[in-house]
């Protein structure tokens, strides 16, 4: 998981980047919108994987930080008319600060107790967003977010999202391939032994939580700008479940797995909804297939096929 990227990986990354740059040239607004949303969800899923894949804890409340970032950006841009850079930086800082406080309590617990506490905190965020109507718009949502004129153009906003998501992914890559990540993996595999060799396991998990929450906040900030609105549903537990499924689908033991899962699940939902109203049933089936047959997700499946192919030839 912490292996450096190989040559084929670098080529794949460059092809992906070139594809992202060329997408607006196709001339389809729909394609641009879909790709923008996929990029945002990819960042959201990649951030969650720092907690799940690297520190080995399951969070049922990751949507809270997505919503905090989104609402902060919405309020600062629209209510206080802050410039974009200041608003984005403030959104990241606010999310980081709140995540730090939540992480302080959550990392005192492990396993199911950790998961339940993350859920409890996320529902608290949801309740605040719901009740604080004068600031968040409550159930009506915070609609009509003002964004700089230059980003009001679809293509410009797309390239802005590509820039932010690619840069954030690079930062996450560096974090996930650092000594810190190796310590986290040690904590994930055997916390007792990691403690014996001098790793402050709780501090490591706290940092992982903060990193994950911060990048989720950034994804939320982009989401709010894309939709020119932020809604309480984005903080609800179902949103946390969706990003968790994205991570599992792509593969939590791979750095890019969650991004692949996000793209796959997003596209599957769009396509399914065009033909049938039974998306929840399809989602349930996907979850069953992952849990029973694809514990390492789509990336794990590809690896298995590649290994099989290599052995046969």
């Amino acid at each position: 998981m912490t292996d450096p990227i190989d040559r084929a990986g670098i080529i794949l990354c460059l092809i992906s980047l070139a594809t992202l740059i060329l997408i607006p040239a196709v001339g389809s607004n729909y394609l641009v919108d879909v790709t923008t949303e996929i990029l945002i969800y990819s960042l959201f899923a990649l951030s969650l994987n720092v907690i799940i894949g690297y520190s080995g804890n399951v969070s049922f409340g990751h949507a809270a930080y997505f919503a905090i970032g989104g609402y902060t950006n919405a309020i600062l841009l629209t209510t206080y008319a802050w410039p974009l850079v200041a608003s984005l930086l403030a959104s990241i800082t606010v999310t980081m600060f709140i995540t730090g406080i939540v992480a302080y309590f959550c990392t005192r617990l492990t396993d199911i107790y950790f998961a339940m506490l993350t859920l409890a905190f996320s529902m608290l965020v949801w309740a605040i967003a719901f009740k604080w109507r004068s600031v968040t718009g409550g159930d009506d949502g915070f609609v009509g977010i003002t964004i700089p004129e230059i980003l009001d153009q679809r293509i410009n906003f797309y390239y802005f999202t590509v820039l932010v998501v690619v840069f954030s992914t690079w930062i996450l890559w560096l974090i996930c391939h650092s000594a810190f990540a190796r310590s986290l993996l040690a904590v994930r595999e055997n916390p007792t032994r990691a403690g014996f060799v001098g790793i402050n396991t709780r501090l490591m998990r706290w940092w992982a939580f903060v990193v994950a929450g911060t990048f989720a906040g950034l994804a939320g900030a982009l989401f709010a700008m894309l939709h020119r609105g932020m809604y309480v549903e984005s903080a609800f537990w179902t949103q946390s479940a969706t990003v968790l499924i994205m991570t599992l689908l792509g593969g939590m033991f791979s750095f890019f797995g969650p991004a692949i899962g996000a793209a796959t699940l997003f596209l599957l939902e769009r396509i399914t909804n065009e033909y049938t109203e039974y998306w929840p049933t399809v989602l349930g089936l996907i979850l069953i297939v992952i849990l029973l047959f694809l514990p390492d997700g789509l990336v794990g499946l590809v690896t298995k096929i590649r290994n099989y192919w290599t052995r046969e030839h």
Partner: peptide, 21 residues
């Protein structure tokens, strides 16, 4: 036709899709 699922974010995405696609 699109299903909004009573969710504003879903509805907004569906509305955009209906227009652009």
């Amino acid at each position: 036709e699109r299903d909004t699922k009573l969710n504003p974010a879903t509805a907004a995405a569906a509305a955009k899709e209906m227009i652009t696609k």
